[in-house]
Simulated scan of single mutants.
Amino acid sequence: MNHPRLLDRRLFLGAGVAAASGLLLAACTEGKPPEYLLGTGETGGFFNEFAALLARTVETAGASFRLVPRPSAGTAENLQLLRAGAVNLALALADAAAAAPEGLESVGRLYQNYFQLAVPAGSPIRAMSELKGHVVSLGPDNSGTQFTGLRILEASGLTPRDITLRPVPLTEVTGAMGRGEIQAALFAGGFPVLAVDPDSGPRGSTAIRLIDLSAEQKVLRGRFGEVYMAANIPAGVYGSAAEVGTIGVASLLLARPDVPASAVGSIVEILVARAAELIPAGALGAQYLDARSLISTSGIGLHPGAAAAYRRLHG
């Protein structure tokens, strides 16, 4: 399989993106509240689950508008859609957003995502540098996981030419490993990621083991700064006997500048006041919905509606 070109800044500037429905700003009809499209992620993933919870909470909170989740491949596609006006809001990993922040405005920082590199439990592979010559999934094409995965790969001393890159949907990862189609897969979320956990995933899921990414985290932090945080997956997750070092990257909720300040402010108030309703099952141990972390948006400036809401709430 041909290796896709390493993602670069041009991917995030939205060049050539076709917005099939044009600029989608608060589409509404008489008697129906405005609707804002929210770019999410792949089925079974953290972004998809969080977006569904947020949309439901916006409705139950009695907001004057509705959020409509719009599935996507993830961060990279979401940034394209946001810039093209095909969605009004979007979820994105902070490192990919920070790589090209032009035109982006943040509603708030949400959860920390834990990057997890898995191999079959019986695999002899013990380090990312040992993936040379193997078939590996670094997440779906056009996803933030792949963006970060390529950076992690290079931090290990490898290049995309050293592996056969085969993107596999999250819900098919363990099956692909069991059939020998891939020898390793990178994914991100809380812990465990339910779609790949043998205890909660599809029947007959392949048992997995995580690879320590502590060395790669140090390299990435040295190159790109605090957006790459040291993190750990506790013992017992996926049946592991010991804690595993990994890489933490925050997720951001972004909005187009033309989304009304009142709507963005209402979302902020919901994030603060109804945080307990917004914890995906896959976000165990990764709760970041509080005032101190919400405004830590990795250099992406706050939407005016968000900034005003934080001032009202916390002075």
Score class of each variant (00 low, 15 high):
residue 137 S to A: 09
residue 140 P to S: 09
residue 83 R to M: 10
residue 162 D to V: 06
residue 135 V to M: 00
residue 129 S to P: 00
residue 189 G to S: 10
residue 129 S to A: 15
residue 112 Q to W: 03
residue 113 N to A: 15
residue 148 T to S: 13
residue 105 E to Y: 05
residue 99 A to L: 07
residue 130 E to H: 00
residue 81 L to P: 09
residue 86 A to I: 00
residue 121 A to R: 11
residue 160 P to Q: 01
residue 152 I to V: 13
residue 114 Y to H: 15
residue 183 Q to R: 13
residue 132 K to P: 00
residue 150 L to E: 12
residue 127 A to F: 02
residue 162 D to S: 09
residue 93 L to M: 05
residue 96 A to Y: 04
residue 88 N to E: 10
residue 141 D to G: 15
residue 89 L to K: 02
residue 88 N to S: 11
residue 181 E to A: 14
residue 115 F to R: 00
residue 74 G to R: 02
residue 182 I to L: 06
residue 186 L to Q: 09
residue 147 F to K: 00
residue 72 S to I: 04
residue 122 G to Y: 11
residue 99 A to M: 09
residue 143 S to I: 02
residue 159 T to N: 12
residue 183 Q to C: 05
residue 169 P to D: 13
residue 101 P to V: 11
residue 86 A to V: 01
residue 200 S to G: 01
residue 145 T to P: 01
residue 161 R to A: 15
residue 128 M to G: 00
residue 111 Y to F: 15
residue 90 A to F: 03
residue 176 A to H: 06
residue 72 S to V: 03
residue 116 Q to A: 04
residue 82 L to E: 09
residue 180 G to A: 10
residue 93 L to H: 14
residue 93 L to T: 05
residue 108 G to N: 02
residue 142 N to I: 01
residue 109 R to Y: 10
residue 200 S to V: 05
residue 163 I to T: 09
residue 164 T to E: 14
residue 126 R to H: 03
residue 107 V to P: 09
residue 106 S to A: 15
residue 181 E to L: 15
residue 138 L to R: 12
residue 180 G to R: 15
residue 153 L to E: 04
residue 147 F to D: 10
residue 119 V to T: 14
residue 137 S to L: 08
residue 162 D to P: 05
residue 179 R to D: 01
residue 172 E to Q: 12
residue 175 G to E: 07
residue 157 G to Q: 11
residue 175 G to S: 06
residue 187 F to T: 06
residue 175 G to K: 14
residue 204 G to P: 14
residue 112 Q to F: 03
residue 88 N to V: 01
residue 128 M to T: 00
residue 134 H to C: 04
residue 123 S to A: 08
residue 197 D to Y: 02
residue 85 G to A: 03
residue 149 G to P: 10
residue 110 L to D: 08
residue 185 A to C: 12
residue 72 S to Y: 06
residue 172 E to N: 06
residue 75 T to D: 09
residue 140 P to R: 02
residue 198 P to F: 02
residue 174 T to F: 07
residue 72 S to P: 11
residue 199 D to W: 04
residue 145 T to R: 00
residue 96 A to H: 07
residue 190 G to P: 04
residue 118 A to P: 09
residue 157 G to Y: 10
residue 140 P to I: 01
residue 168 V to M: 05
residue 117 L to A: 12
residue 119 V to I: 06
residue 126 R to S: 11
residue 118 A to I: 11
residue 126 R to V: 00
residue 205 S to W: 10
residue 193 V to M: 12
residue 195 A to K: 05
residue 142 N to K: 08
residue 194 L to D: 07
residue 184 A to P: 08
residue 161 R to I: 00
residue 118 A to V: 15
residue 182 I to M: 13
residue 102 E to P: 07
residue 197 D to E: 03
residue 100 A to Q: 14
residue 205 S to R: 07
residue 86 A to D: 13
residue 87 V to K: 10
residue 120 P to D: 07
residue 86 A to R: 04
residue 74 G to T: 01
residue 109 R to H: 08
residue 166 R to V: 04
residue 199 D to Q: 14
residue 113 N to Q: 14
residue 120 P to M: 02
residue 168 V to C: 09
residue 142 N to Q: 12
residue 82 L to T: 15
residue 176 A to D: 02
residue 184 A to K: 02
residue 158 L to W: 07
residue 179 R to I: 00
residue 114 Y to W: 09
residue 76 A to G: 11
residue 95 D to A: 15
residue 155 A to D: 07
residue 196 V to D: 07
residue 111 Y to D: 04
residue 102 E to H: 11
residue 146 Q to R: 15
